[in-house]
């Protein structure tokens, strides 16, 4: 099942105004399962021209992976990518993923159409 999510794209150098926001690109944040209050606040910010709120529900699905899975070191230098940040957007076995470090755990989000292939690749490794 895909996730409910929104992207906030900021025009003025601000941020997404949410502790749950994942900085996935410069001036772009992803909020998974956004709260109504946040949506309302960001809608007002968009109306004020501060940025754009885009519903991307359905784009990302979670993929389970063990933190010591060989697939992680086979895909990317994660220690390097996550040294100064908690989320990185990258290609993992040719699938676009977001790797999120949360409370010491590693979580993967993959674009929905790639989920089947990525899971199959992880199972092979």
């Amino acid at each position: 099942m895909s996730l409910s999510a929104c992207e906030w794209v900021d025009f003025d150098g601000g941020d997404a105004n949410s502790d749950l926001a994942l900085a996935i690109a410069p001036a772009r944040w992803l909020v998974v399962a956004p709260q109504e209050a946040w949506l309302a606040e960001r809608t007002q910010a968009a109306l004020a021209g501060l940025g754009a709120l885009i519903d991307v529900s359905g784009r990302w699905v979670p993929v389970e992976i063990a933190p010591d899975s060989p697939a992680l070191s086979a895909a990317a230098p994660l220690e390097l990518y996550l040294r100064d940040r908690d989320v990185a957007a990258l290609w993992m076995f040719d699938c676009p993923v977001l790797i999120v470090r949360c409370n010491g755990e590693i979580r993967l989000l993959v674009e929905a159409s790639y989920a089947h292939s990525l899971r199959a690749m992880l199972a092979r490794l």
């Binding site: 086979a74 076995f93 040719d94 159409s113 790639y114 989920a115 292939s117 092979r124």
Partner: peptide
Amino acid sequence: SGSRVGAGLRPERRTALH
């Protein structure tokens, strides 16, 4: 080629209606 062999050569994207 690493893991890009056989079924791992390239991902296959699937729609929700697959």
